[in-house]
């Protein structure tokens, strides 16, 4: 079943075109890597897919709902309830403790603090970072911080997680650890993942990959 479909996306920032006819489709529980050189439009594609950016042209449909027809507030709500996000860095609120960071989306969804935080503790444990629960993001290592971020993206049991260079700021070993735990968790919960990366080793965790070059996307054909 197709969960998220984007067709013929165009997006320009001022005179600079970022996307010129990119598209992508992803099924439930599928993990798709978006690859391509820097400046190729990978992140812009991800932002359009997640409803953060409105494309100039083209449609993004999530579960047969056109994101372009939704209001700003509706799209916010969709991102909050159906999607999760992991970025390269700087995604945790620096003032909140790691536990509070993970509990934040649940609290925004209206959960009581106690309930939200007990689920956040489970989430942190699943990513093997229960020990940093009381610390602030600034006091953790890069790998721990990213795992907290993954825990936060997973805590609302989203249908899709958008990950933009989730290991970009990490060394190979820490990156691998984050990816292993991340992918283990999403495969267990059947969550789909859109993974933007320029590292083939990270892309190899995905089921298939889409290459973006000069604002156009291409499915990589399978050999054999």
């Amino acid at each position: 079943m197709t969960l998220l479909v984007a067709e013929d996306l165009h997006k320009a920032f001022g005179p600079t075109p970022a996307l010129v006819g990119a598209g992508l489709s992803i099924g439930a529980g599928e993990i798709v890597a978006i690859m391509g050189p820097s400046g190729s439009g990978k992140s812009t594609l991800l932002h359009c897919l997640a409803g953060i950016l409105r494309p100039d042209r083209g449609t993004v449909r999530y579960q047969d709902v056109d994101l372009g027809s939704l209001s700003d507030g509706k799209r916010s709500e969709l991102r909050r309830t159906e999607f999760g996000f992991v970025f390269q860095f700087g995604q945790l609120v620096p003032e909140l403790t790691c536990l509070e960071n993970v509990a934040l989306p649940l609290r925004l969804a209206g959960l009581k603090r106690r309930d939200a935080e007990s689920r956040a503790v489970e989430g942190l444990a699943r990513l093997e970072v229960a020990d940093v629960a009381g610390k602030r993001p600034g006091e953790t290592s890069g790998g721990q911080g990213q795992r907290v971020a993954v825990a936060r993206a997973l805590v609302t049991s989203p249908k899709v997680i958008f990950a933009d260079e989730p290991t970009g700021a990490l060394d190979s070993l820490n990156g691998e650890r984050v990816m292993t735990l991340f992918l283990g968790a999403v495969r267990a919960s059947g969550t789909a993942v859109v993974l933007v990366t320029h590292e083939p080793r990270v892309a190899a965790y995905a089921d298939r990959e889409v290459v973006v070059r000069d604002g156009r996307s291409r499915e990589v054909e399978r050999a054999g």
Binding site: P200, R201, A203, A204, Y205, R218, V220, E221, R222, A223
Partner: peptide
């Protein structure tokens, strides 16, 4: 290049 690339990534996926 593209078919080679796909083959490589397939191999990498298996190894991963």
């Amino acid at each position: 290049l593209d078919s080679q690339r796909a083959a490589h990534l397939d191999a990498m996926r298996v190894l991963t």
